[in-house]
Design a protein around this nucleic acid. Structure first.
Lengths: 206, 206
DNA sequence: TACGGTGATGTCATAAACTGACATCAGGGT
DNA sequence: ACCCTGATGTCAGTTTATGACATCACCGTA
């Protein structure tokens, strides 16, 4: 018999998600979470920096995947294509846990404090991405811009996917959203006129 | 004689900025801030929701300006031009207080908690902008995307401006950054002429 | 086998962040 | 004169977060 039940961290994550879902983030105390996991408040804080962090698992390989895919992309690819490639590579990581993602999203959507943390995580991703782009030789401002736009695209696509997870693959939504970006930035009638493809087609129209 | 010295809120903001600058955000306690402003901790919390909020003044007319400028823009303008217009309209608001902006930035740059809040404020701006774009008849996803990109552009431009405020006007930096966005999405050289600008070479996944 | 080190957890104490309830009291209107 | 309002103070309490120290199964090694 081992001294402690296994996977304390996992139990805390599970307990937290359940309690946040059931009674709300604010109405849940860290002591409650710990108790439900059969642990102590102090132990909670040994595993997570604060009450929010428990919803943002650190074993998330997203950042690494983005960085690696960015570094690995063909040198001739234009910046935004590199970003698109990286995001597409990272998409399956999220799709694996679609149900969990929706549960987390429900809690986050109901709690400003958690939205704040989520945005911070996205910003960190943008920073990682920007760093990886600079390593490829991109000028700093361009890299930052491409990274920010990439994350914006990801954010919009992810939101669509989470709201409607059975309709489209995340990777496809990312691609569509990126195409929409191109239409937004070059809507002058010529440029991207002939691509057609799998685009959603919501031009400003009227 | 009035019972209290005037502008309690302003005094709290000033005291907080000074203390955060001098001894760091974490090492500063709310009681300290209040004392320096000649007030009480309890009163601090009557003016600001929390310790971070004191750096993000609520009288900030940025959101309103963005919304108004978006609504007022010509109906024929493509989405991103509307956003560019709105951002350009809002720029002077920030440029008026350049020195204050730099002080705030120094503190924020040194404090993850404050960066988190800053991102949240930007996200709120994006949300406002997206709403205003939808009011113009834009489809929801397109509006969200244009808003997010606009805020990304603003964020990069603002960062450049704050770092080097005497070189360029903020409005000009916004313009330049937006142009950079266009170049990113429609890479130079073949200028989107031969591949329709929607070339996505990353089918390599298979 | 005995024994000492390691590491995850518990216990305790405490600062600091917030919040609700109630008290105070100048000033402004009636 | 009177009451009412509204900004502030006082106080007590909960919750978050962290440092210091104790515990004790497990593991390797003599």
């Amino acid at each position: 018999m081992s001294r402690w039940k296994p996977d304390a961290r996992g139990r805390l994550e599970k307990a937290a998600l359940e309690l946040y879902n059931h009674q709300g983030f604010d109405a849940t105390t860290v002591a409650e979470i710990a108790a439900r996991a059969g642990l102590t408040e102090r132990t909670f804080y040994r595993h997570f920096a604060d009450k929010r962090e428990v919803l943002f698992p650190s074993d998330n390989p997203l950042a690494d995947t983005l960085a690696d895919a960015t570094a690995a992309a063909s040198v001739t690819l234009p910046p935004l294509e590199v970003v698109a490639h990286a995001l597409t590579e990272a998409a399956p990581i999220l799709e694996e846990r679609a149900d969990l993602a929706r549960q987390r999203r429900a809690v986050i959507a109901a709690t400003p404090e958690l939205q704040e943390r989520e945005r911070a995580k996205l910003a960190a991703l943008a920073s990682t991405l920007g760093h990886a782009l600079r390593e490829r030789g991109l000028e700093a401002t361009t890299a930052a811009l491409a990274a920010e736009i990439g994350i914006a695209v990801f954010n919009v696509a992810y939101e669509r996917w989470v709201n409607d997870p059975d309709q489209h693959a995340l990777a496809q939504l990312i691609r569509e959203t990126l195409d929409a970006t191109r239409h937004l930035t070059a809507p002058a009638g010529h440029a991207a006129a002939n691509d057609g493809g799998s685009f959603t087609g919501q031009e400003t129209g009227a």
